[in-house]
């Protein structure tokens, strides 16, 4: 197996774990917070809210801006 495939596989693995966690978190008995709850917790503070917006802005800048 090539290192390219392993690396891509690892990205997909973490993506799958994230999706799995979120699905599990929606079970009422689960103690795992949903993705939205995690983001809301971070954005509870002004610093967290601005920081997340700055990360979002960075994604766009990184992918499209010089």
């Amino acid at each position: 197996m090539s290192s390219h495939a392993i690396t891509v596989g690892l990205y997909l693995l973490f993506l799958a774990i994230g999706i799995g966690l979120n699905i599990r978190a929606h079970n009422p008995k689960s103690r795992i917070p949903t993705f939205s709850q995690m983001l809301r917790r971070i954005m509870h503070s002004r610093t967290g809210r601005i920081a997340l917006v700055a990360w979002w802005a960075f994604i766009g800048l990184h992918l499209f801006s010089k």
């Binding site: 994230g18 966690l21 978190a25 689960s30 103690r31 795992i32 917070p33 993705f35 709850q37 995690m38 809301r40 917790r41 509870h44 503070s45 002004r46 610093t47 809210r49 601005i50």
Partner: peptide
């Protein structure tokens, strides 16, 4: 327009947050 919330933050499980 951002401000910190005056409400108490939602209590989340440490284990759950660690998983994320």
């Amino acid at each position: 327009i951002s401000a910190g919330s005056a409400a108490q933050p939602e209590q989340l499980s440490m284990t759950g947050m660690a998983a994320w």
